[in-house]
Amino acid sequence: MIFSPQSRVWIYQSNRKFSSVEEIEILHKLEAFTSQWKAHGNELMAKAEIRYGFFIILTVDESQANVTGCSIDSSVRIIKDIEQSYHVDLFNRFNMAYKIGEEVHVQGKEDFETLVNIKQITTKTIVFNNMVQTLQELETKWEVPFENSWHANVFAHLL
């Protein structure tokens, strides 16, 4: 399947890395979900993936059928089910993800702020902007240097 660059994406970030067994199980659940995901009876062209062991990404190409409130609710239900089954936090927007080399780390807001303060996280550190909304933004604006992210505005007083 080829997805349009304008396809909608939703990113759910875990507070801890999934084990390889968990990742396989979760992907099976998500594939079963996306294969039957509908909006007002119309099949949605959708896919799910896990990146870096932390990020569940749902993608829907709306050129076939538009996502509706009900279809979004059903996706939230499956994510909440995963959250409970695997004892992870997928909805806490105060967890910040960043990369050191190729390794992803997730910290709570206070710990992240401390790392910025003590210069463990610098203006060049890659951070994740989980608020991207399209596949194109996912590919171009999801992993960005701290200085080019919304994080820089929130933590500007520490730079």
Rank of each mutant, 00 (worst) to 15 (best):
E31G: 06
W10H: 03
E22H: 09
V76C: 10
T122W: 02
K109A: 11
V116T: 13
D111K: 15
T123F: 13
A97G: 04
V144T: 10
Q6H: 10
I82G: 03
H151S: 12
L159P: 04
E103A: 14
W10P: 00
L30C: 01
M131C: 15
V67M: 08
Q13M: 09
T140G: 08
L58G: 08
A97E: 03
I24K: 15
Q84E: 10
F146G: 04
E139I: 14
V67L: 05
N95T: 10
T59Q: 07
S71C: 00
C70N: 10
E22T: 08
N148Y: 05
T68G: 02
S14R: 04
H87N: 13
F33S: 08
V154K: 11
I72Y: 07
W10D: 00
N92S: 13
K119F: 02
L135N: 13
N95H: 10
V21I: 12
K99R: 07
R51M: 08
A39N: 06
L30Y: 00
E23R: 09
F55I: 02
F54Y: 04
E23W: 01
S74D: 03
L159D: 14
T125F: 05
E113N: 09
E113T: 05
E62C: 02
M1Y: 08
E43N: 14
A97Y: 00
I118Y: 07
D73K: 02
A156W: 01
Y52F: 11
H151K: 14
N95M: 09
R93V: 04
V144P: 02
T123S: 14
W142T: 15
I82R: 08
S14A: 05
V127A: 10
